[in-house]
Structures are given as C-alpha cells and as structure tokens.
Amino acid sequence: MSRLEIVKTYKIYIGGQFPRTESGRYYSPVNKDGKVLGNICLSSRKDVRNAVVAARKAIGSWSERAAFNRGQILYRIAEMLEGRKAQFVEELQFQGSSKQAAEAEVNLAIDRIVYYAGWCDKYQAIVSSVNPVASSHFNFSVAEPMGVVGIIVPENSSLIGLVSLVLPVICGGNTVVVLAAENLPLCAVTFAEVLHSSDVPGGVINILTGSTKEMTPTLSTHMDVNALVYGGTDPLELKEIQENAVLNVKRVFAYLTDWTKADAQGLHFISDVQEIKTIWHPIENVGGATSNY
C-alpha cells in the first residue's frame, strides 16, 4: 500500500504560538517549475495588530534581561538551526536555489546568528560614551532599545535576509514584527519553529506571512511601532512607509545590501535601532587630579 504524504501546514508565529491567520485566508505561491510551495497564511491587518500587541508585551522582560543572557539565547537559536539544517536546505532548493547555494545560505545564516549572539554584551560598551562637559556633571550616553520594530524582509531571500535583519534588532533588546518574503515564505515559518524550540521568549520575534503590500500600511501607521527596518527594493513602497512613519515619528531604516556576502553584517545594524540616552549626573570632578573618586 502506498503511503499518503503528510503536507505541512505553514502557520504564522505570534506571541510564541502558531495560530492560523484570524482572517482564515491563504495563498499558494509557486516555484519556478510551477509547483505549489504550500498553502500559506494570508495574514490580515488584525494579525499585524495582534503581533504588535505580543511584541509590546514582550519588550519589558526582553530589554531588561542581562545582555549576557540575551547572547546565550541567540546562540541557542544557532544551535537549533544547525540541527535542522537539512530541512532548510530542502526548502531553499524547493523554492528554487541550487543545492550548493542553499547549503551556503544556511551555513551563513547560522554563522551570522552566532556573530550577533557575540555582540549582545559588547555593543553597549562601544556605542556608549562618557562625555566631557564644561559644568560639574558626570555626563554619559548609553544605548537603549527603540522598542517594537517592524521588519520588512527582502523579497528575493527566504532565510538569510530575514536572519540578517532580525538578529541585530533583537540583539539590542528590541522586539520585532516581521513580514516574511511573500513568494519565498517557507524558511520564515520553519525559522519560527526553530525559535519556538530555542529559548527565545514568546513575542520577541513575531513572523507573519502574506501580502507585504496589504500589511505594510498597517504596520507603518501603527502608533505602537517605534521603528521600521525596510529590506525591500521598491522606492515607492519605501516612500509610503516613510510618509506613514511620520504619524508617530517612527525611525525608518532602509538597507540595500547583498546579505549573501560574508561581510554583510556589523555593529551599525545593531546601533541603528538604539536610541541614545544622555544622563547629566551632578557631581564634582570625576577624573581630575584632585578628584575624590
């Protein structure tokens, strides 16, 4: 008797859970051979809203977690991804990559996660500063996460684009709502399963699949989103996002980067989504020869 293959249901990831879209809709993207990749959730604006609520709820404990512990958790994502490498390679191939390219992409994704895991307890020391001022104050600047960050990943990449944009943002203590690549959504959902089985608290990363065009306006106008990272290539879409962002003066960052390059990573992807807080602490001389400190 031949066996009936069980086809995976790809669901979205909100607040550490895998609901179906509240709209009940789906779409069926195809690969270049015309094969259907799967029935994928066509998320609605209410899903965007729910994801933002989940991300807001998670921000307190994630941003206040010890930096070292955040690094451990990010490293754990890399460990879990390593264990499921084969599945990602298979999905990338199914979506049109060559075997060689797929393997390279997954390896690079794992390495990049480890790279940002290492940064968690180090970026603060580099981007913060003690500032010389003319009054009797100890004046210092520290980086603080911006809050809830919306991320629109590049359309031409299923895994490495998402990893490259998400990891530096959560590394710095932000929580994120990610709109996955519309026509290459498989790895995004499987990555959510990796997150789920690692130690990332629910709500820190929320991943939605569906029409970017439909979800972007909701995400970019949402008053409870503090910043947006745009990985797409459409200047008109970016312009619309920037205009919407004015509503609550969200920061908008757009990166036109080839994420498959080994050096497409760096401190500025972390520090971009940090606000700098400067503190004036009344004090006498701090570092002078007559200082009591």
Binding site: R49, T218, H222, M223, D224, L247
Partner: peptide
C-alpha cells in the same frame, strides 16, 4: 483615525 493606537498616548 483608522490607525492602531499605542498606550503611550
């Protein structure tokens, strides 16, 4: 307003 709100306001 047609726009989702934030408790900040």
């Amino acid at each position: 307003t047609g726009v989702y709100q934030s408790s900040d306001y």
